[in-house]
Design a binder for these strands. Structure first.
Lengths: 134, 134
DNA sequence: TCAGCACACTTGAATGATTCAAGTAAAGGA
DNA sequence: TCCTTTACTTGAATCATTCAAGTGTGCTGA
């Protein structure tokens, strides 16, 4: 664990679902110039090591957060991309029980609620860009 | 609705969570040469019109399916990328009720179960590439 | 009949997050 | 001291997707 990686952890835990670019900026602020590739590399290592959780909502760059292991989910705004944590509706981790697992060995459930955040609701009058129905 | 778009619908409904490239091939088989951009364009239109559902698992290209409106979810294999449908664990559509919606206007819930499909389980001995824990 | 227009489609180029490749430097172990 | 591993650097490549600009076709209203 190097200074750069510590700075990544600090930046991520101090931010709110940051993307790689934002993390990179934060790390540079803390410890001086660090290459973007080092950030990618370290984020991967930290993620595989279970220290960071990776969030990849469709159509937007990867984001990271330090809240791991508590099986919470995410609200994503279709308009501004803002991400908000929500606790698991089922109640306890892990909610890894699909109705039928079809023989799969399930190790993670990714739940994303798509919608409009309060701010965008007020601004756009409750009309998401492309009304995806599901 | 043109021949090309009809061919897209037929290809997607006859396939299994196809990606854009596969759909493009299928459409060309049915109605002759069609540009990739036309396929992208039409897929977008069909998706916005509610005729196709879009699935975008992290780290793999967008896929489409014709099963819309029944709020089912997906099992995705970490190793081979195979996608399998699962019915909603909650039971009835829409399972759009996060524990707290934080003021969001939620219109869709995307649930992806990550794991190993039966085939990859047998081959790799139940070891996903990067053991993401959650 | 014809201008105007919307729309599906074409070709070609651009974007942008991410990954790959190859090399350097520092730390740790034998 | 040598060797190996690991973190990091610079630079280039990849690839799905989108943007831009132009072409042809069919419909509508005058």
């Amino acid at each position: 664990m190097t200074a750069a990686r510590l700075a990544i952890l600090q930046t991520v835990s101090g931010g709110d679902h940051l993307d790689v670019e934002a993390i990179h900026r934060g790390v540079c602020d803390r410890v001086g110039q660090v290459s973007l590739q080092a950030v990618y590399d370290s984020l991967n290592a930290l993620h595989c090591g279970g220290l960071l959780r990776r969030i990849e909502p469709a159509g937007s760059p990867t984001r990271y957060e330090t809240r791991v292991g508590d099986n919470h989910h995410h609200l994503v705004c279709r308009t501004c991309g803002r991400i908000t944590d929500v606790d698991c509706a089922v109640g306890h981790a892990p909610c890894l029980d699909p109705a039928s697992d079809a023989g799969y060995l399930v190790d993670e459930a990714d739940v994303i609620y798509w919608g409009l955040c309060p701010r965008c609701r007020a601004e756009t009058g409750s009309a998401p860009p492309c009304p995806a129905r599901d």
